[in-house]
Each structure stands twice: as structure tokens, then as C-alpha cells.
Amino acid sequence: MVRKTKEDAELTRQKIVDAARTVFLARGVSRSTLEHIASQAEVTRGAVYWHFKNKTEIFHAIREQVFLPLIDRMDDTLAISADNSQNPLDQIEASMCSTIQALNDNIEMREIYEIMMIKCEYVDEFALVLHQIMNNCSSLVEKIEATYARAQSQNLLASSITPGALALDTHLFFGGLLHMWVKDADGSKFRYQAIDLIKSHIKLRRK
């Protein structure tokens, strides 16, 4: 009975998160209320408050659905192989391409990226969210820098630019590409060539 209650609670929580994604996408985060989310989820406002203290917590829950898997995927892709035989530049390229492929394949992921990038104003209670996003970005840059450092140690880089500078450049390139990918709804400008753009970006670094 207790297990069933926990399962029901988790189902309700996920229903609220899914409803919030729909509401945020349609109205924008700032114009969405807990009442809108409760109505979309077909639950009471009290049920929403049982699971989430406020709208910011719901936003975090939505974001974690894509960001945590992204971190895991990057960790797996950029990890040093057991025999150290993987080309580090191939690993960086693959980490970006896999994100684009996931966006192509997963409508939920596309919607969440759209909310994060163009449907949310990071002000007031969401100012802290922006700070956390920036911290997460720093962590990603560090992972990419370590991979460029391996490429440098293997004499694979065409440039004498430091791994740190290369990592920051790659991070900014990919962040910009993701923003334009999300905005390119009909796929006529960036989506169709995103993989080729990534490969060109890494090719400029190859010796």
C-alpha cells in the first residue's frame, strides 16, 4: 500500500512537470502561474504545492530532465578510454554531435531547450537559476579543456592556442549553435547543417 502511494505520488509529480513544460512552452515562464500548471495537469493547486514549493522548483525539475543526461553523456563521451586509444578531438566532436542527434530524436528535449533558451527571463527569482547555469557551463568547459589538453599532449592540435582558450571557444560556438538550432523551427538555416558545422569547427583544430 505504501509502495502504491509512493508510485501514485511520483506519477502525479511527473504529470505536473509535463504540464509545466506544456504551459511554459505556450505562455513563457514569466507569464505562467501555478494555477495554469495545475489546470493543465488536471490536479489541484494544493497537489502542485505538495510536490513543489514554487515555480522555480518546477523549472529546475524540467531542466534536470535534459541537463543531467547531457552531463552523463559528455562524461561518457569525453572519458579516457581504458587503452587511451580514442582520439580526443573525435571525442569532443562526438559529444556535440550526440547532443544534436538527441535534439533531432527527442521532442521533449527540444521543448525543454526552447523553454530554457527563449521562453525564460532570468530575472527576479530566476536570477539564481542563471547563476547555476553559468556554474554548470564552467564545469563543461573544464571537461572540454581536459580533453583538448590530451589532444595537445598527443600532438594532434594544429594550433598553439592553449587548451583552455580552445575549450572556451568550443563552448561558445556550441552554445551559439544550440540557440540558433532551437530558433530555426523549420530547419532551413541551421538544423540541417548542424553536424557539418560541428565537424568543420573541430577540423580547424586538427593537425
Rank of each mutant, 00 (worst) to 15 (best):
144 I>Q: 01
125 E>M: 13
84 N>H: 08
82 A>Q: 08
63 R>F: 11
116 M>Q: 08
108 E>F: 02
117 M>Y: 11
93 E>G: 04
153 S>E: 14
133 I>T: 11
138 S>E: 13
126 F>Y: 14
128 L>I: 15
124 D>K: 15
106 N>G: 04
59 F>R: 07
124 D>R: 15
76 D>H: 07
59 F>V: 07
60 H>T: 10
138 S>T: 13
114 E>G: 07
137 C>K: 09
146 A>Y: 03
147 T>D: 03
124 D>L: 10
142 E>W: 04
63 R>P: 02
137 C>Q: 10
57 E>Q: 13
89 L>N: 05
105 D>K: 05
64 E>N: 13
69 P>Q: 03
121 E>V: 08
104 N>C: 07
80 I>E: 09
124 D>N: 14
125 E>C: 11
138 S>G: 13
110 R>N: 09
79 A>S: 08
123 V>I: 15
101 Q>C: 06
147 T>K: 01
91 Q>V: 05
114 E>W: 04
150 R>I: 03
97 C>I: 08
61 A>T: 10
88 P>D: 01
76 D>R: 07
150 R>H: 04
138 S>Y: 15
102 A>K: 09
63 R>Y: 13
65 Q>T: 08
106 N>K: 06
88 P>R: 02
87 N>P: 12
71 I>G: 06
74 M>I: 01
145 E>H: 03
122 Y>M: 09
127 A>C: 10
140 L>D: 05
156 L>C: 11
97 C>A: 14
57 E>M: 05
118 I>H: 15
152 Q>F: 06
100 I>Y: 01
92 I>S: 00
135 N>Q: 15
72 D>C: 06
60 H>Q: 14
109 M>I: 04
82 A>D: 06
111 E>H: 10
103 L>E: 02
103 L>Y: 02
66 V>L: 08
155 N>E: 14
149 A>Y: 05
153 S>D: 14
130 L>H: 11
90 D>N: 06
66 V>G: 01
146 A>W: 05
117 M>I: 11
61 A>Y: 03
127 A>T: 14
117 M>G: 07
135 N>R: 15
127 A>K: 08
149 A>T: 09
137 C>T: 11
96 M>L: 03
92 I>D: 00
122 Y>I: 07
82 A>T: 08
69 P>G: 02
140 L>I: 10
61 A>F: 03
101 Q>K: 12
66 V>H: 04
150 R>N: 01
144 I>H: 00
100 I>A: 08
88 P>K: 02
99 T>Q: 08
100 I>R: 02
67 F>V: 15
64 E>Y: 05
148 Y>V: 00
138 S>N: 11
122 Y>A: 07
151 A>S: 10
89 L>V: 03
98 S>Y: 01
153 S>V: 10
76 D>M: 12
92 I>P: 00
89 L>K: 03
74 M>H: 00
115 I>Q: 01
90 D>Y: 00
96 M>W: 00
152 Q>C: 08
81 S>D: 15
154 Q>D: 10
68 L>P: 04
149 A>M: 10
124 D>S: 13
67 F>A: 14
93 E>A: 11
142 E>K: 12
72 D>K: 04
141 V>R: 03
110 R>T: 09
85 S>G: 12
145 E>V: 03
81 S>L: 02
79 A>P: 07
93 E>H: 00
125 E>G: 08
112 I>K: 02
